[in-house]
Structures are given as structure tokens and as C-alpha cells.
Design a protein around this nucleic acid. Structure first.
Lengths: 344, 344
DNA sequence: TTGTATGCGTTATCAA
DNA sequence: TTGATAACGCATACAA
């Protein structure tokens, strides 16, 4: 079953004009008489003619579309971010092709390969947790394929970057827990090698230091899939909760870690914040409906999407590589709610 | 700035063979000698050659990609559904282009136009709440553009459809509330003209009738944006809660209606289920973490996505229109939790 | 077994 | 002001 759309040739035949005349008339070329333009336009309108974007792409060597590689659509941070990307892209006449890696290096690779093989003019990427080697990205980048990194940044690639101040987010979160009187603050982190994990770890450490608390390595656990899989959070929690000196509160460094921490506490009937306090990264707009409401670090996801798309399109449309690259760092927002309030 | 990828011509020049030989060698044609194939393959591998999908699309008159039009990515039902779509599509060598209408007819129209203008081989669609006229869809469909409808079904279009048993979902939800002893059951519905709304309304009515309760029109409120905007839910709730004979429980007929109902109760300090009971449609995997945990009707979103993608690809690859169309109706699942338990 | 020519739908160059 | 022709990258019918 095949859908046949109207093409220039069809119009050309009916109106008895050449294909090139039709093309020029529809593109409002100065070379064509008003009379002819009107005739052509009206007929094209009538049969609902639309230029074939595939042919235009081949001809113009650009597709007017951008690709996005994220970990998971069903993650509030990413879905909000995509809304920002779409709003800018559509306004500038670009389409957005979304692909998800599901935190798998293999999938990231094949998605990127598809996108880069000229289906899109450039790409926004937040690498998967599994990705430790960035050759697939740098290789393309060196050959001129436009990238903008966001969220999970790759350090040694020279291009525009959009992220949040992860250090500050973690610092503020930890400081808030300290302020509430918690002493043994554990951290659930995303994969250890990720830039966001390291920055958040630094913020956490700095806040401890400033509060005169000693940093205890044994209170740190990393989850290779960023908490996407409940089992990895469960295991990390089991380990931490069976320490001789148990933590009395948690800093959860990603969306899924935060919710799966709550899930764990619910399952084990651990009361928040009485038994364990919590501040976590989350962009879910349901965290305020939990009991207790969760204290969260919220990222300006929509704005990050807007900024990243803006930068990427600028890169695509630039005649030559820009002299310097933007490194946008947006501020996170700490929303203090019940889960970090020490009760006793 | 432009990214130039390798093409057949490049290989052809280097190896001193014609473009067609290269093409055939890479496509493993029987006409080419093993020796040549090996030579070509190795060099192609070395320079990381990938065929230009745009050129292939133009040539083959198909793009090996499918489009999806949904209301909103940041909606658990849709994002889970997309995961199902992607898993099937990728397995069959198709790419997925996602667009969101944000419940706007205008956006649905322009998204569809983009997708149909030969960027994709077919389309999965769940119409926006604003869409009352389906001409833009039926017009394309009549001209042979493959569609599969899911979730929000269009009745008068002859094609494959994937939905859930909305009647049963609503019936079970309402019956559960009746069983708990609630008497005045209000319904928050999506836009009135949607098929899902009508079916859910019927299920609700039938359950009332079977329980010997009278149907009271004044207890029904429709939200034109399916609860996506908090204000519309707030207004509906304000109206219902200022009735002389207030409802004592709610059936919320969509994801966003359910969560915004909870948000409203939290804001107004209305205790669930003591003051108001609730069963609502929701696919969020956080509803069990609320206090009380929410009783929800859960849709098999992932499976729906798989089924819809499967049917669409079958449609695309069929030589001619199938004699009859599938009308898949999957069962919803009622998860009974705290919010529908009558306490007093 | 390999090469040449053609066409997919569009736009741009050149000619009329 | 309009038309014929070439080109974008690829795959295939036809020639050799």
C-alpha cells in the first residue's frame, strides 16, 4: 500500500508549464510573472501540494531537523527538556527526532549513527550512564557534525554545553540536611564516571566540610543505571542500611534515585523523615503530593532544552566554526519540603 | 559549518571501480565476486561508510520511519506507550519520529502535515482533545497514507485500532467505589466528544445502574484539556464541591485528572479517602507512593504501543489494503489501594 | 563479473 | 519570462 503525494511534475502537466517554472513560481521567484504565479499557486493549493522534504533534503544537503539523544523519555527531567527543545526548534522551522538510549551504550551508538548519517543537521546529546568512551561522538564532531552537550557533559569535546550548577545543587541539598540536624548523610549517586556525579559529589563533600562533618566514603553508593532499575537502588540501600553506623539521611543525586529511595522506604516501612531524611534531585511535579512532600533540587529542564536547541541551531546555521563556545550553567532550585525536616 | 560524510563515489574513486559495483558489493549482490566484495567492504568499513538515508528514501520512496502523534510526552501513559512503539519499530528496522500536539488542534494539524509529506511511511495517532473534525486524517487516509489509531479512537475511519476496554475500566472503578460504600460518585472526564470519554461515561453509568444508584448529571464535569491544565480541574472541583449535595467520592477518567484531583485535595486540605474517595486512570508509577496510595486503573501502555507499531508496519509493508481491520481492545487493570477505602 | 545510464523530486545554472 | 538540463546519492535495468 503506497501513498502517492502530488509533485511538481503533476502540476506541470496539468498547467502546461515546465517543472522549473512551477518550482520558481511556488518559491516566489522574481523571474516569474504575477499571472503565472497566481495560476500555479492556486492549483497547488487546490491539490494540496507540499514539496517532498526528502528530495529537498537531498538537494540542499540538510534536513532541517535536529536529533536528540536522551536516556529515557519516561523521565520527567528529559520530557520537560524535550518540550523546551521542541518549542525553539519548531519556531525556527526545525523538526525534532527523539531517540532514547535507555542508558545503554549500544543503543546510544546506533541512535547516533542513524541520526548522524545525514538524517539530521545536528544533535543534542546527554550521554548514557554506560558510556565511558566518547569516540563515537568526538569522531563525528571532528568531521564537522554539530553537537551540543547538555546535562551529562563530555569534558574533552569543544562545543556548546548546557548544564546546571551541579555542585551548587548538591551543596545546597546537603547543607539543608545539615541545617536540619542530620549527621550521617549518605549519598546515592548516578554512575561514578559521569560528570554530573562527580560535580554533585564535590558539592556534597564541600557542604560536609563547611559544616565540620567528616566525609565517609562508606556512605557513598553509585548506581550504574542512575536508579532506572529498582534493584540497583535496593541493593545500594540494603548495603547502607546494614552498616554498623547507619546513615540518618540521604542525598539522592538523580530523579530515579529519589523516587526509588522513597519506594524502598515505603517497602521497608522506614519513615521519612523520622528515620531517614531526604533531599533529592527530581523534576517530577508529583513530589509535592507525597507524604511527606519531598524536598527536591529541581532543574530548569524546559529552559535547558530551549537553550540547547538555540545553540545547536546557531551552530548548524553558522558559516564556519565559532571562535569560542558557550558553556551555559543554569542554577538549580532547592524546594524545601517535609522530607528534610528533622522531627525529633 | 557542514558535515560531509563518505559516499559511494568516494569509494569508487579510491578503488577504481564504478559506483554501481560498489553499491552492489555493499548490498551483497550475487553479481559481484567475493574478492571485490571483500575489498569494497573492508574499505567501506575503514572509512566508516554509511548509506545516505535521504538518498535511499528518495530512491525507494519510503523512509523506513514511522510517525507518532500524541498529546504530550510528559504523560506517563504516552511515554510508556512510546517505549513499546520504539521496541517494535527498531526491531523491524524502522525509526520513530515523535511529535506532540499538546492537546492543540493546530499543532496536530501541522505535525501531521509534516509527517505525511513523505517524511514517514505511516503514522500512529491519538487525537488531541481539541480535535473534533477529523478531515485532515481521513483525507490522507483515503489517499492511502497508513494510519493506526490508538487510545483516542476515531470511529469513522476504517483502519487498525488499538485501545483499551474503557467501558470496563470505568465500570470496575465505579463498582469498586460502590463496594466501598460511597454513594455520590462524581466523574471528572476528559473532553466530552472524545471516544474514550463517552465509553468511560457509559461504564460509569452502567456500574451505577447495576448498584441501584441513580445517575446524576450534575456530578459530571468535563475538562477540555484532559486535566493538563490545573485551572480547569480546579474549576470543575470548585463547582462540584459547592453543590448542595456534594459528591463523596470521585472517578477521575484520565492520568492528569487523577493527579490534579489529588493536588486539589491537598491544596484544600481535603482528606482522601475520609472526605473524598478516589479511583482514577493513571499510569504513573508513583501513585503507590502517595499517602494514601491511589487506587488506579492502569492501561497496558507498553503493550498498546507494541501492538500499534506492529499493525502499522504490517499495513505499510502490505502490497494492498487488507480486507479487514483489527480492532484490538486490551484489558485495563484495576489496582485497589488506599484512596478508595472508606474509613468511617 | 563489471560498467553505463536512468530515475527518485527538487532547485539552480544556463540557454532561449 | 520561461524551458531544458544537471546535480544531490543511491539502486537497478540494461549493456558489455
Amino acid at each position: 500500500m503506497k501513498y502517492e503525494a502530488a509533485k511538481l511534475k503533476d502540476i506541470s502537466k496539468v498547467l502546461g508549464l515546465s517543472v522549473s517554472t512551477i518550482s520558481r513560481a511556488l518559491n516566489d521567484s522574481y523571474e516569474i510573472s504575477e499571472k503565472t504565479k497566481k495560476l500555479v499557486r492556486e492549483y497547488a493549493e487546490k491539490i494540496n501540494y507540499r514539496p517532498n522534504p526528502v528530495a529537498v533534503s537531498l538537494r540542499e544537503k540538510r534536513s532541517r531537523s535536529i536529533g536528540v539523544i536522551i536516556a529515557e523519555i519516561a523521565n520527567s527531567f528529559f520530557s520537560q527538556m524535550i518540550n523546551g527543545v521542541e518549542s525553539v526548534a519548531h519556531a525556527k522551522g526545525y523538526n525534532v527526532i527523539i531517540t532514547q538510549s535507555l542508558e545503554s551504550y549500544e543503543r546510544e551508538l546506533s541512535n547516533l549513527e542513524f541520526l548522524a548519517s545525514r538524517s539530521v543537521d545536528g544533535c543534542l546529546i546527554s550521554v548514557s550512564t554506560e558510556t565511558k568512551n566518547f569516540d563515537h561522538i568526538t569522531r563525528l564532531h571532528k568531521r564537522g557534525f554539530p553537537f551540543v552537550c547538555f546535562d551529562r557533559i563530555i569534558d574533552d569535546i569543544k562545543t556548546h554545553k548546557v548544564s546546571i550548577d551541579n555542585f551548587k545543587g548538591a551543596y545546597d541539598a546537603t547543607k539543608e540536611l545539615v541545617k536540619s540536624g542530620f549527621k550521617r548523610i549518605a549519598m546515592l549517586g548516578n554512575a561514578e564516571h559521569l560528570s554530573i556525579t562527580q560535580e554533585r559529589l564535590s558539592g556534597y563533600k564541600a557542604a560536609l566540610a563547611d559544616a565540620g562533618l567528616v566525609f565517609d566514603e562508606s556512605l557513598i553508593r553509585y548506581c550504574l543505571h542512575g536508579g532506572m532499575i529498582y534493584g540497583e537502588v535496593e541493593q545500594a540501600m540494603n548495603e547502607l542500611m546494614s552498616l554498623r553506623k547507619k546513615p540518618d539521611t540521604f542525598f539522592a543525586a538523580s530523579d530515579k534515585l529519589t523516587t526509588n529511595f522513597v519506594r524502598y522506604c515505603k517497602a521497608k516501612k522506614i519513615s521519612i523523615p523520622n528515620k531517614l531524611g531526604l533531599v533529592g534531585f527530581s523534576n517530577l511535579d508529583l513530589t509535592d503530593l507525597l507524604t511527606p512532600a519531598l524536598s527536591v533540587i529541581r532543574q530548569p529542564a524546559f529552559e535547558m532544552g530551549e537553550a540547547a536547541a538555540e545553540l545547536l541551531i546557531k551552530l548548524i546555521e553558522a558559516k564556519r566554526p565559532p571562535a569560542d563556545f558557550e558553556n551555559m550553567v543554569l542554577p538549580p532550585e532547592l524546594l524545601i519540603r517535609g522530607s528534610s525536616e528533622r522531627k525529633k
